[in-house]
Structure formats: structure tokens, C-alpha cells
């Protein structure tokens, strides 16, 4: 996504700061206060957004470790519904908590670099004549086609897409 969350949040903050808040009449104190709170919320979200997913994983790892220690400290771990559920959850959580997730900013930069490299290789392929160029063109059309669907789905509820109803749900797109 070229316009990622930090870009969107910064644009919201600028609109509030530059246009909306200065236009609120001084006597509309509640509106002014809430507009400023919106701006503050957004500013805080902007500082968190790159790291939000990693922090959530850290939290999962943290509490999984705690749960493991708590289970271990039970004197006589006789079977119980709670204990069975705790062990199942731990089994599910531990591999996820071990995932090494890059910050979103790093992921975005890597994606841009991979796009750029693809573009240069495409140009080289097009320079190598019709047969290679055609093969490269088909690869591009295939991959771009699938990415377009992904991006259309991401904004299908925004009202831009004439054929939004034919698109899959966001939760079903990988």
C-alpha cells in the first residue's frame, strides 16, 4: 500500500490543525476541545503505528511465558478444565509469540525496494527482445492483477468500486 497508515494519519492531523480547528468558532468550546482530542489521539497513534503489531506480539510472548511459569508452579497439576484450556492455549500461542516480525516501516521500505528492483529487471527483460519481453510482460500482468484485487478489497467499503459486491471479503484475502 503506497498510502500507508502513517501517511493517512499525518494527513488527518494536518487537516485538523490547518483547516478544521482554526475554523471552529471560539464559543464552540466542546467542539474545539474534542477536535483537539482527536488531534492528540491521532498524534499518539502515529507514534505507535509502526510498532503496534510487534508490541502486541511481545505482549503475547510475555503473558505466554507467565502462563507457563504459573502452570509449572502448581503443586499437583491434576487435570482440570482450566488447566487443559491453559495448556492448549499455550501450545497455540508459543509458536506465534516466537515470530520475528519487522516493524511496519521496515516492511514498507523493503517492499518499495523489491518493487524498484522488479521494475529494473523488467526493463532489462524488455531490452532483451520480444520473446523475453513477452514472458516478462505476462509475469507482470499476472502478479499486478492479483495485487490489484488485494488493494481493491482493502477499500471496497469506501464506495469507489463499481464492482465492489463481486469482490471477496477483506478477511478472506491473503
Amino acid at each position: 500500500m503506497l498510502i500507508d497508515d502513517p501517511v493517512r494519519i499525518r494527513s488527518l492531523i494536518r487537516a485538523l490543525q490547518d483547516v478544521v480547528i482554526p475554523s471552529i468558532a471560539p464559543q464552540a468550546q466542546l467542539a474545539l476541545e474534542q477536535a483537539n482530542l482527536v488531534r492528540l489521539h491521532l498524534s499518539l497513534m502515529l507514534t505507535q503505528t509502526d510498532y503496534a503489531y510487534r508490541l502486541q506480539l511481545s505482549e503475547l510472548a510475555h503473558f505466554s511465558a507467565m502462563l507457563g511459569e504459573l502452570i509449572a508452579c502448581l503443586a499437583a497439576p491434576a487435570g482440570s478444565t482450566d488447566l487443559d484450556r491453559a495448556r492448549q492455549l499455550l501450545q497455540r500461542a508459543e509458536p506465534i509469540a516466537r515470530l520475528q516480525i519487522p516493524d511496519r516501516g521496515e516492511l514498507a521500505r523493503l517492499t518499495v525496494a523489491v518493487r524498484e528492483a522488479s521494475d529494473r529487471i523488467l526493463q532489462a527483460a524488455l531490452d532483451q527482445g520480444d520473446a523475453v519481453g513477452r514472458q516478462a510482460a505476462h509475469i507482470v500482468l499476472d502478479y499486478v492483477g492479483r495485487q490489484i484485487v488485494r488493494e481493491r478489497v482493502a477499500v471496497k467499503t469506501a464506495g469507489f468500486d463499481l464492482d465492489a459486491a463481486a469482490l471477496p471479503d477483506l478477511k478472506d484475502v491473503t
Binding site: 503506497l2 517492499t111 518499495v112 518493487r115 524498484e116 522488479s118 521494475d119 529494473r120 523488467l122 526493463q123 524488455l126 516478462a136 510482460a137 507482470v140 500482468l141 499486478v144
Partner: peptide, 12 residues
């Protein structure tokens, strides 16, 4: 802000 190979292909 990011390369778009489809535009390169079509531009050519």
C-alpha cells in the same frame, strides 16, 4: 513513491 512495473510495461 514506488515503482509500478505495469506502468513501465505500458509506457514502453
Amino acid at each position: 513513491v514506488a515503482a509500478e512495473p505495469l506502468l513501465t510495461l505500458v509506457g514502453r
